[in-house]
Simulated assay, not measured.
Amino acid sequence: MKIMLPSLAAVALLALTACDNKTPEVVSSVSEDPQAAAIANRAPVELPPAIKAEKSMRCQPGNVLFFVTFFEGDKQARVRTEKGGTPVTVTAATAGEPLTGEGWTLTGTPTSAKITQPGKGDFTCKG
């Protein structure tokens, strides 16, 4: 019995050393994404611009008030005639050009701008 116990231990160790030569099998319950290739090859997404400034602008002639949201990149703004009113989005292809949309035109900065409202004319504004 004394001789048999060490020989059984040697056989068990020999069996365990044989396991070290194999790479472990990876088991996962998650299948591969069928759209992985399409997602990897799609065009990059451009985020909407961040808000640069929101201003209420007093404009002349007529002491008119406009509410303007300026966006980073200077290619987009939103103009409202009332604080809770529906905004009109004005855009430009490149920064520095006049922002236009739905008959509106806006040029300038959050501190000083010129706004053209359809049917009402040009207004010189200060923020």
Score class of each variant (00 low, 15 high):
Pro98Asp: 05
Ala92Trp: 03
Val90Cys: 05
Thr81Gln: 14
Ser29Lys: 13
Ser112Phe: 09
Thr94Tyr: 11
Lys52Val: 00
Val26Trp: 08
Gly62Met: 02
Gln60Pro: 02
Ile115Asp: 10
Glu82Lys: 15
Gln35Ala: 14
Arg78Gly: 02
Thr94Leu: 12
Glu46Ala: 13
Lys83Phe: 15
Gly62Pro: 05
Gly121Trp: 07
Lys114Asp: 14
Phe67Cys: 04
Ala9Cys: 14
Ala95Tyr: 06
Gly84Cys: 01
Thr100Cys: 00
Ala40Met: 07
Thr89Trp: 03
Ala92Thr: 02
Ala18Lys: 00
Met1His: 08
Gly84Arg: 12
Ala37Asn: 07
Leu65Ser: 11
Glu82Val: 01
Ala93Gly: 00
Pro49Gly: 09
Thr89His: 06
Arg58Thr: 09
Pro87Asn: 06
Met1Pro: 10
Phe66Ala: 04
Gly127Asp: 12
Ala50Asn: 06
Val30Ser: 09
Gly84Gln: 13
Thr105Ala: 01
Ala50Gly: 04
Pro49Phe: 10
Ala12Gly: 08
Val90Ser: 04
Val45Asp: 02
Phe123Met: 12
Lys52Asn: 03
Leu65Gln: 14
Gly85Asp: 02
Gly103Glu: 04
Val45Phe: 11
Leu99Asn: 07
Gln76Asp: 00
Pro110Val: 12
Glu32Gly: 13
Ala95Arg: 10
Ser29Pro: 02
Ile51Asn: 07
Gly85Lys: 02
Asn63Trp: 05
Pro98His: 06
Phe66Asp: 03
Pro24Arg: 03
Ala18Asn: 01
Val26Phe: 11
Ala93Thr: 03
Pro24Gln: 02
Leu5Gly: 05
Ala95Ile: 07
Ser112Asp: 11
Pro24Phe: 00
Val26Gln: 11
Val26Asp: 05
Thr109Gln: 13
Pro6Arg: 05
Lys75Asp: 01
Ile3Thr: 06
Val26Thr: 13
Arg80Gln: 14
Thr107Ile: 08
Glu102Arg: 14
Ser112Arg: 15
Met57His: 06
Ser29Ile: 13
Gly127Asn: 08
Lys120Gln: 15
Val68His: 06
Gln76Leu: 08
Gly84Ala: 12
Thr100His: 00
Val27Tyr: 11
Lys55Asn: 09
Asp122Gly: 03
Thr91Trp: 06
Val68Gln: 09
Ala12Phe: 12
Val45Cys: 00
Asn41Gln: 13
Ala40Cys: 00
Met57Gln: 14
Val88Trp: 07
Thr81Cys: 08
Thr107Arg: 10
Glu72Gly: 01
Gly127Glu: 09
Lys114Trp: 07
Val79Leu: 13
Val68Tyr: 09
Asn21Ser: 10
Glu54Phe: 06
Asn41Pro: 00
Val45Trp: 06
Leu14Val: 01
Ser31Ala: 12
Ala43Arg: 12
Val64Tyr: 07
